[in-house]
Write a protein that binds this DNA or RNA. Structure first.
Length: 486
RNA sequence: CGGGGCGUAGUGUAACGGUAGCACGAGUCCUUUGGGAGGAUUUAGUCCGAGUUCAAAUCUCGGCGCCCCGACCA
């Protein structure tokens, strides 16, 4: 529970209008700026630092899993993209296409990649000859372009940054194992680093990736009751292999089509982070991803007799904490008032604030204030590193617990369509309900309630209950999660 | 792509067809600094084009751009 809120001048309250709040925060916390190109975004250093953390963490896990990084071209010949019919139909409305270059019209237009399946798989067909070449595990960190009609900083931008993993396996089992492994990485990342407890599961037919056999995703429960698809992992079966003629000789010397996967996580994840933990005072960064984990503020004016003492003590503390691997920023600003400085750091969501002034120096203490709860306590500076570390751990754990609580509270089990609609009107939530899995039925639900199936949770996939669909009454045997999506 | 709205200083806003103003920001100086300090001073603006009018930020037309709602959307 928060002790009290410190309202920010001019900041919309999250509870009043989460959309305005979100835009305000992105700008005022210094995460991003709008750019000259509609729907594109400039990621500022503070926002980019979060992305770098995402990259470093996932990249190390990928490499432990034997995945290698590579880079494929930004431009894809249009004809190549058109090879897989469903794939091109899925992406054609949002393609950016280059028709002129080098001062003349191109003989064949080039598509700016919306994703790299086609250009990679054309190449894979040359790389793969024998079962000894498999599995092939490739990842790339890059930008992609999807010309969305409506954009939103981080959550949906025309150009965004992501990683796309693409793997090729001798068997469907091998591919499926990879699909679940990637999904596991994403889930672990959200839980342990972003302190967000997500739902993980299988997508329905209408939400499946263009050209995939099955799509799995990580869905975040946003505190306003909406869903944010936060990462995906696809079982591509041998669909693309057949189109791009990827074949290998098995141990018996027979030609065989391999099974493929692709999986990705984008800068949208940062949008999920902002929405999940932020409050009326600004961003709240979980310590593990926070660019600055601790800010140390000097208190007192520049003319204060003890000023130089205070500053040197602060520098000593900072050095000590940095040595222990804690990311510290020091604020010795004397041109702004105390309140101003505190508010700026709160807007940026720095997890822990230490205040050092005359009193602290005299007592051998440091005043510590948690960003998530605003709880204040005095730390004994003799054990500064251990006290700060344990507070940071506590904040990380509490944020995850808070996320789990929100997820629990915003998930409702229903059996009837009336209850489904009532729930959405009274208190927008995730809804778990038995569903027939029919696409027409889902289209109806979407039409009437704006809600769509989000996922079938992993532990529900093998269920075979005898139920009836909450919406149309037809037989159903599994319970799906529905929600309105971002 | 359909419906609605809006373009005024870096940002946010005001001005019956009649002197473009206010706040924030930014710069300089002084006093301040334990939860968004005060004063002095400086700074900078009507999206573009055409039309109506003695006179246009304001009315008309066109262009461009943005926002909201919807459709679309990994």
């Amino acid at each position: 529970m928060k002790e009290k809120e410190f309202i920010k001048k001019g900041l919309t309250k999250k509870s009043e209008n989460i959309s305005d709040w979100y835009h305000d925060i992105v700008l005022r916390a210094g995460l991003a700026d709008y750019s000259e190109v509609k729907g594109s975004m400039i990621i500022k250093p503070y926002g980019y630092a979060i992305w770098e953390h995402v990259q470093q963490t996932l990249d190390s896990w990928f490499k432990e899993g034997g995945v290698q990084n590579a880079y494929f071209p930004l431009f894809i010949p249009y004809s190549l993209l058109k090879k897989e019919k469903e794939h091109v139909e899925g992406f054609s409305p949002e393609l950016a296409i280059v028709t002129h270059a080098g001062g003349e019209e191109l003989a064949e237009p080039l598509v700016v990649r919306p994703t790299s399946e086609t250009i990679m798989y054309e190449t894979f067909s040359k790389w793969i000859q024998s079962y000894r070449d498999l599995p092939l595990l490739i990842n790339q960190w890059c930008n992609v372009v999807r010309w969305e009609k409506r954009t939103y900083p981080f959550l949906r931008t025309t150009e965004f940054l992501w990683q796309e993993g693409h793997t090729v396996h001798t068997s469907e089992e091998g591919a499926m194992e990879m699909v679940l492994k990637a999904l596991g990485w994403y889930k672990k990342f959200y839980k342990e680093h972003f302190a967000i407890s997500p739902y993980v599961g299988l997508k329905s037919g209408s939400e499946r990736f263009a050209g995939a056999k099955a799509t799995y995703s990580v869905e975040l429960v946003i505190p306003d009751g909406k869903a944010l698809q936060a990462a995906t992992s696809h079982n591509l079966s041998d669909h693309f292999a057949k189109v791009f003629d990827i074949q290998f000789l098995n141990e018996k010397g027979e030609k065989q089509y391999p099974h493929q996967t692709s999986w990705g996580l984008s800068t949208r994840s940062i949008g999920g982070l902002i929405l999940s933990h932020g409050d009326d005072s600004g961003l709240v960064m979980p310590p593990r991803v926070a660019p600055h984990q601790v800010v140390i503020l000097a208190i007192g004016s520049a003319e204060d007799s003890e000023r130089s003492k205070i500053e040197s003590v602060i520098q000593d503390y900072a050095t000590e904490l940095k040595k222990a691997g804690i990311r510290v920023v020091v604020d010795l600003d004397t041109t702004h008032s105390m309140g101003y400085r505190i508010n700026e750091w709160e807007l940026k969501g720095v997890p822990l604030r230490l205040e050092i002034g005359k009193r602290e120096i005299a007592d051998g203490k440091a005043t510590a204030v948690r960003r998530d709860t605003f709880a204040k306590n005095q730390l004994d500076v003799k054990n500064l590193v251990s006290e700060v570390s344990s507070l940071l751990d506590k904040i990380q754990a509490d944020l995850l617990a808070q996320s789990e609580k929100i997820k629990r509270e915003l998930t409702v089990d229903v059996a009837s369509y009336d209850d489904f609609k009532k729930t959405l009107i009274e208190h927008r939530s995730f809804i778990r309900a038995p569903w027939c899995e029919d696409a027409a039925c889902e289209a109806n639900i979407k039409e009437e309630t704006k809600a769509t199936s989000r996922i079938l949770e992993l532990d529900q996939i093998d269920q075979k209950e005898s139920l009836s669909c909450f919406a149309c009454g037809k037989p159903a045997f599994r319970r799906w999660l529905f929600a309105q999506a971002y």
